[in-house]
Write a protein that binds this DNA or RNA. Structure first.
Lengths: 198, 198
DNA sequence: TCTTGACTAGACCGACCGGTCAACTATAAT
DNA sequence: ATTATAGTTGACCGGTCGGTCTAGTCAAGA
């Protein structure tokens, strides 16, 4: 049973790393199994399909993202706007670390999957949509706090939260396209300055 | 010879449409040949590889983009900032038209390829990077004009142009993820309000 | 008329794809 | 000791992948 949890988790983590570094379509089940040191039969014991595995991978990504990025940025004793700046800094550090290690700026795992699969697989599209909606919720709450403490004027908070998320995703995509995490360092902090008026 | 131009062009246009609607990896050479009414032998007479075809597809996309979107937005007798708003409107109309026709919001063709292939194929990454750099150049020129005519204060123009492009790409990705072109209508106009200070 | 070279047709290649299956082992409850 | 269950193994499936190759069509130039 413990071994089983381990096997499932190994598959999940191998898939997460491979799909993030390459893409959904470019990573086969066989490669995931090799990387996890598991045979195909075991793979299909734990996951009914590659799609189902990918849904679990998105969950895994989001859990880790909340732990490594969101929790630190949004729980700190920072002013609301500075939480966005902290988020920008953490995003930079994360991408920089990966780039130094593997030589590629990988961008946002959710954005990558969304761009590749949204038109191909409705389940995957909806899963990523849900992740984005949760992020937007955090942004809205933070903007609420910013307005409450006078750091931000009256604005269209839901729209601003959406715009901030879009901007962040766009920056991650540009960093990936230029294969340069410095794009994030230069431009991501401006996320905190985005305002959609009422 | 005329027939040859036609064959090459048919392959190119079939590939453009299929890759845009699905993705690079999800579209095989056979499917492109079927769609173009061409046999594999002909395909490989005109293109050495699927990758080379895709490079040509990106060029094809950009030519069409410049004709259908850029030319109209940036040549009109609009104020510089209104050119960005015109661009937003054209982007919306384009995505809306596609969505009404095929039921999916496809997002930005360049962003899609960048997200999927940047870490997998250096040639493709660089090609899309070049396209983005050209777009940025147009944005810079327009911001220059905006500053010159007093529509915009002194700002960091190169950074603002980058931020605008990132924002636009992010909005397109969100529209794709939500499968809803209205995201573009609601949020893309705010592109004109982005400022990176000196 | 003969030759050349661009173009087309379609069979074919090995590799890989996602997924299945029956047989096997290890564990733990009865 | 027996049985049920969870987990593992590796051979195997039909289909598709990108790409090759040979034979042949066809129009233009000599």
């Amino acid at each position: 049973m413990n071994a089983a949890v381990n096997t499932r988790q190994r598959i999940l983590e191998s898939a997460r790393d491979l799909i993030y570094a390459r893409s959904f379509s470019e990573v086969g089940v066989a490669a995931i199994c090799d990387s996890a040191g598991v045979k195909k039969g075991s793979f299909y014991h734990f996951f009914h399909s590659k799609q189902e595995l990918t849904l679990a991978v998105i969950d895994e990504f989001f859990i880790e993202f909340k732990q490594r990025i969101f929790a630190q940025a949004f729980s700190a004793n920072l002013s609301p706007l500075n939480r966005f700046r902290k988020l920008a800094d953490l995003a930079y550090r994360f991408q920089k670390e990966i780039a130094d290690e593997i030589g590629h700026t990988l961008g946002c795992p959710f954005g990558n999957i969304a761009a590749e699969m949204s038109t191909q697989d409705e389940h995957l599209r909806h899963k990523v949509e849900t992740v984005f909606n949760q992020m937007e919720g955090h942004f809205r709450d933070t903007l609420d706090a910013a307005v409450a403490c006078g750091e931000v004027d009256e604005i269209n908070i839901p729209a601003t939260a959406k715009a901030m998320l879009a901007y962040a995703e766009g920056i991650m995509l540009m960093a990936k396209t230029h294969n340069d995490p410095e794009v994030i360092r230069e431009l991501m902090p401006a996320m905190a300055d985005i305002r959609i008026r009422l």
